[in-house]
Design a protein around this nucleic acid. Structure first.
Length: 174
DNA sequence: GGGACGATTGAA
DNA sequence: TCAATCGTCCCA
């Protein structure tokens, strides 16, 4: 079923390589009732290391962001605005805190909506995409055209970091 | 213990 | 334009 599941080495690279390559990949999910779904990733954002003031890791390692400091290939899940779960894929090697926020899949735009669609919650914190039986990412064989833009909702990080073109998306699957 | 704030969303 | 809503983190 998951013969094309991405292997750990895919994630153990710089987040600025991993993030754009995740666009067009297929995110697969098996739910508790046995049903399943898969969706093509259409929009992501890269958060890169302790110097990136928009990245949670810039505040130092805490229980909340610990997953981002771990080896790539796991999920970093957090809760914001009192109501939304954010789904992130951890990239790079241990102690290089980098992650990719999944902002949209085909037919569903917005990070909070994606998590609601995929029924993501705290229980997915640090879930391993290489071995999980309920969520993983597959190669789709697709090669969408990728566009870039500044990241959304990070003005608090200052003009330099908020203007990095680290949002990657495609319009190929609308 | 108290308070500020957020990688958002949906409605006014 | 603005309220909803609460976990996390900093300061006292």
């Amino acid at each position: 079923m998951d013969a094309t599941r991405l292997t750990p080495d895919f994630y153990l690279r710089d987040v600025l390589l991993v993030a754009p390559e995740l666009v067009g990949k297929r995110i697969c999910r098996i739910y508790e009732d046995g049903t399943s779904s898969s969706h093509i990733v259409t929009e992501v954002e890269a958060y890169k290391g302790m110097n990136d003031l928009a990245c949670h890791a810039s505040k130092g390692r805490t229980p909340r962001n610990d997953a981002m400091f771990q080896q790539g290939g796991i999920l970093y899940i957090y809760f914001v605005y009192g109501m939304h779960w954010m789904l992130n894929v951890v990239a790079s090697v241990e102690n290089e805190p980098e992650a990719v926020l999944i902002r949209g899949v085909a037919g569903c735009s917005g990070p909070g909506r994606v998590s609601r669609l995929l029924k993501i919650d705290r229980s997915f914190y640090a879930e391993n995409l290489g071995s999980s039986q309920r969520i993983w990412i597959e190669d789709s064989g697709l090669f969408p055209s990728i566009l870039t833009a500044p990241r959304i909702g990070v003005n608090y990080a200052g003009s330099y970091w908020s203007s990095r073109p680290w949002r990657f998306y495609t319009n190929d699957y609308r």
